[in-house]
């Protein structure tokens, strides 16, 4: 009887995960065109074609998503720590501020960065202009160009802008789980560490960090997985050299109408992410979490 309690969840997984996966796999192995219809032929070669043609975009997606995840962690951890250390009203206000961007659409938030980063009349360059610091804007562009993160010293429409957009958009997904696990951190443990003459650094390394690991793992997963499949940031903030796999799938599905190729790419992305996540979770060794 206890198994019956699993039924709703299982049903959900079957309808919204297993079935779509099978459909995607099946579509990827079909051949045909929209006029004549697609028929299953078991054309496994499509996977070779897909990988051969689009491996750079796949790798790029994983690299961008990975970088954005690390950046989110670096930005999110101190903030989550600070929020968890506050009490009462301040804490609630800060949490609402973290969630507030969700009240605006994802698309609008991403487009806002176009207006902020634009080199001609953008918010950033205007503010720096008022502060007589315009050189900072140019210097930043030059640094990006030097690091090969911008093709021509422009801040917008560069790989950096795409990674920054991803970081910004998925940051709350990092902060919230981090906050949850840091909030549960028992203050007495920190006291005990101090009593035993641990330096703040050691306290962090041996108490805080290990205790927050479940938050780190779920935060990084919640950031990395959607970021790897994202195609809005690269489309709105990137250039022709920053195309991510989501854009390829979008264009194969909607414009070329090559449903098998689009499905094959989706499936490859899914398998890649699953594999990476499995390895990551194994390494992180947080069985209680997953």
């Amino acid at each position: 009887m206890p198994y019956a309690l699993l039924a709703p969840g299982l049903l959900w997984l079957i309808i919204f995960f297993v079935a779509p996966m099978i459909t995607t796999l099946s579509t990827s192995l079909q051949e045909g065109n929209v006029d004549d219809g697609f028929v299953f032929t078991g054309n496994v070669a499509i996977y070779w074609d897909a990988l051969h043609a689009y491996w750079p975009q796949l790798v790029r997606s994983l690299v961008y998503a990975g970088t954005a995840t690390v950046l989110s962690l670096l930005l999110g951890y101190p903030l989550a720590y600070y929020i968890a250390s506050r009490r009462g009203r301040a804490k609630n206000v800060l949490l609402v501020l973290v969630i507030a961007p969700f009240f605006t659409s994802f698309l609008i938030r991403t487009m806002a960065w176009q207006s902020i980063l634009a080199s001609d009349g953008g918010l950033l360059v205007k503010v720096l202009g008022w502060l007589h610091l315009t050189w900072l804007f140019d210097a930043f562009g030059n640094v990006l160009q030097f690091l090969h993160l911008s093709p021509n010293g422009e801040i917008l429409y560069s790989p950096w802008a795409v990674i920054w957009g991803l970081t910004y958009n998925f940051l709350p997904f990092m902060i919230l789980p981090l906050y949850t696990s840091l909030d549960r951190l028992d203050g007495r443990l920190l006291e005990a560490a101090r009593d035993l003459y641990a330096t703040p650094r050691d306290t962090f390394r041996f108490v805080t960090w290990p205790m927050s690991l479940p938050g780190v793992v779920s935060g990084t997963l919640l950031t990395f997985i959607p970021a790897a499949g994202d195609y809005i940031n690269s489309r709105l903030l990137g250039n022709t050299q920053t195309v991510m796999i989501g854009q390829v799938i979008d264009s194969q599905f909607l414009r070329v109408l090559d449903y098998p190729l689009a499905s094959a790419l989706s499936f490859v992305l899914l398998v890649l992410i699953l594999a990476l996540v499995t390895i990551y979770v194994r390494k992180a060794g947080t069985e209680e979490l997953v």
Partner: peptide
Amino acid sequence: GAGGLGLAALTGCGIQGRNPGGG
């Protein structure tokens, strides 16, 4: 019919076309 290929579950969802006979 597709069961013969051993992939019945995968073939259940072909995508219909509109131009029977080759366009």
